[in-house]
Design a protein around this nucleic acid. Structure first.
Lengths: 215, 215
DNA sequence: CGTATCATTGAAACGTGTCAAGAATAGTGG
DNA sequence: CCACTATTCTTGACACGTTTCAATGATACG
């Protein structure tokens, strides 16, 4: 058992269904599936064959190395889509970060979804490549800055940015330790670039400065 | 002018055409285009709208940061396909590493290529995500080991692996400096895991050991 | 209110980067 | 074909950034 599988519940709309078969099979209506914070949406090695759109909440997509190191390849927020694979098998884990609802779209055998999936795949590819640039070239400050800018943009460019994930998640996404992430937040705060409204909410005080830092 | 744009020629089959319009427009036949070592196939910001299959040679796909740092997001070898984008614009540079010939497939306006492109996009996504794991979690030795294993697998799993790219290219791909790449090669050599046949050719002496290292 | 979890901060260790020199390789012209 | 030159690669010493380890502080939960 590891820290990522804790599943606590206390949710918005409906009671949560840890059972992730909810909504599968009944093709036309695509009902919602609910996931508690930390619960698994799918696992590496499982059979793929559906994609998921987030109604509310947030999801982390990750892989594990044999020794437990974790790389989060993407976060997905409300409105975004994830879960399609090159293979018929999932190569990643998907977990709800918070209380999350997803709409599941099963791909029926024999039905060609290329037209719908290609833009999603290309979007994912584009994001992954952007992330490669960050991990391959940038130092801790630049990585955190890029992350905050990205989160802000995806939340409509508001000054207040919600961070649904923990420092550990951010670290595993950016290839840094939680201590380094924490130190960078402190440094950005000291420079007056951001303000920590609370642990999970950042106010971007000087967006220009942050953008400069992110490259 | 930078080191990456040197274009020297002395080629296999036909005379090289530095003009990369060769083969475009003439839809049905898809003739070959030739590129000298270091020459550009397309640039960031250019209009996209085609994809390319490598007949022979090797290609690097990369982005640049404002200060000149370069992230190579992928290498492509003979038989592989690259060049499609989420957007109508290229977000990357593509350069021939060596003397290279590519077959260009123009996507005519209004024609739906989703069915053909989706598997390619998913393959690219899968590769990018694998690479993310390497850059996000692994140290220098693990990165180089993973790189060599990948190159070996893509060349049919032979003991002798050709490395068409320079140490600088490898470094920019793995998020390391050329010095670190060089030191890791030396260390792997000392451990008897690889043998440097010459600068651009590695013999994998103990594949098991290398695979262990790559994770 | 007490306890577990998560985040911050500090000091020291480690790995990789930087800078500089020398060796090997490839390309050029006699 | 050989020597000359430019480029690329290797190696070493040192600097720097990030990680590790450990302790303290803040926050969420029962």
């Amino acid at each position: 058992m590891n820290a990522y599988t804790t599943a606590r519940i206390a949710l918005p709309p409906q009671p949560t269904h840890p059972n992730r078969q909810v909504g599968f099979g009944s093709a036309p209506v695509q009902p919602l599936s609910f996931f508690a914070a930390g619960s698994e949406i799918y696992a590496q090695g499982e059979k793929a064959g559906a994609f998921y759109q987030i109604e509310f909440g947030a999801v982390r997509i990750y892989r594990l190395l044999a020794d437990g190191r974790r790389q989060i390849s993407a976060f997905h927020l409300a409105g975004e889509t994830f879960g399609f694979e090159a293979d018929t098998t999932h190569h990643f884990f998907a977990e709800a970060i918070n209380a999350t609802a997803v709409r599941t779209f099963r791909v029926a055998a024999g039905v060609d979804m290329s037209r719908q999936l290609l833009p999603l795949a290309l979007k994912g590819l584009s994001r992954a490549q952007e992330h490669l640039l960050v991990l391959g070239c940038q130092n801790a400050i630049e990585r955190v800055a890029a992350f905050l800018i990205d989160m802000a943009d995806r939340q409509g460019g508001l000054r207040q940015v919600e961070l649904p994930m923990s420092r550990m998640d951010i670290g595993d996404y950016l290839g840094l330790t939680i201590e380094t992430v924490s130190r960078v937040f402190t440094k950005l705060k000291e420079k007056g670039v951001i303000r920590l409204v609370n642990l999970r909410c950042v106010e971007i005080v000087r967006q220009d400065a942050l953008r400069d830092m992110s490259e």
